[in-house]
Amino acid sequence: MRKIGFVSILILIMLLAACSSNASGSKGYPDKNLEIVAPASPGGGWDLTARSLEKVLTDENLVEQNINVVNKPGGGGEVGWKYLKSKDAHTLAVNSSLVLTNNLLGQSDLTYNEFTPIATLATEWQALAVPADSKYSTATEFLEATKENPDSMKIGVGPGLGNDDHLSLVQAASEFGINPSELNFLVYEGGGDVVTALLGGHVDAVTTSLSEVKDQHLAGKLKILAVSSDKPVEGIEDVPTWQDEGVDMVFPHWRGLMGPPDMTEEEIAYWDEKISKMVETEQWKKVLDNNDWESFYKNSEETEAFLKEQNDLYQKLVKDSGMMK
């Protein structure tokens, strides 16, 4: 009998706890510990972005409050962003184009405009690479051959369709007059597997982030045919951009920061000030350098416009790719 009593006390505590969770005052923002949500497991790209932010903001004394990184992996970011939506302005989350594509692909009900854009931080570029002994030496040659016989060209991509690796080639192909839904993609589990497959000659080409293949290119193990940047990339100036190849596109693979819905003007202004200072620090530049990222800073207002423009682009790309009918 006493056990039942004990259980009911537990349940009572639970109910009490459920009722008394939300209480926040707002004197000077921020007035308590800050949280940066990495919607991924520790060690992944988003996690490292979040931890770098935390480290630079703290080390450079830009933010006085404690910053904690919180990992909420799952659903390609959705779990973390849902969590963000339920929090107040002391929680921010790292994002990337998945915040747009999850919804466009019908995998999530969350849309980007349910959140407050804070900043766009950095970008990587996309690369199209072929084996070192491939008969194609330019991107144009490759696309010509693909155009003739799209089915025969095995293209490696990872870790899932609808990501930037995939969609950047979709855009290039459709600019070139190829129907992207006819491309023959083999989907590998991650960027590393894609490169292994290319090195082993199991695919004819791969589309992936530049950092995955840059060293391999320098070591002569494979050839990068084109990068998606607007100007040649430092270190591999010999590799043409898509624009050099006559394909009119610039495709950033960006990372940004966003906050929960309905942040106030002053809260946004706070972050605009802090982040714009942060991106100028030596330490942040070192982070960019180590990761092969490029600075891509946009403040909250610019980011809002950028996201809108990106969303329109992705909508078209997702449709072109044939993933949604």
């Binding site: 056990k3 259980v7 349940i11 505590i13 639970m14 706890a17 459920a18 969770s21």
Partner: peptide, 17 residues
């Protein structure tokens, strides 16, 4: 049964208290 039940209660309490 009780172990499982406690486990369920724990799951509810974990993030709340």
């Amino acid at each position: 049964c009780v172990t499982i039940l406690f486990g369920i209660i724990y799951s509810f309490l974990f993030e709340r208290v």
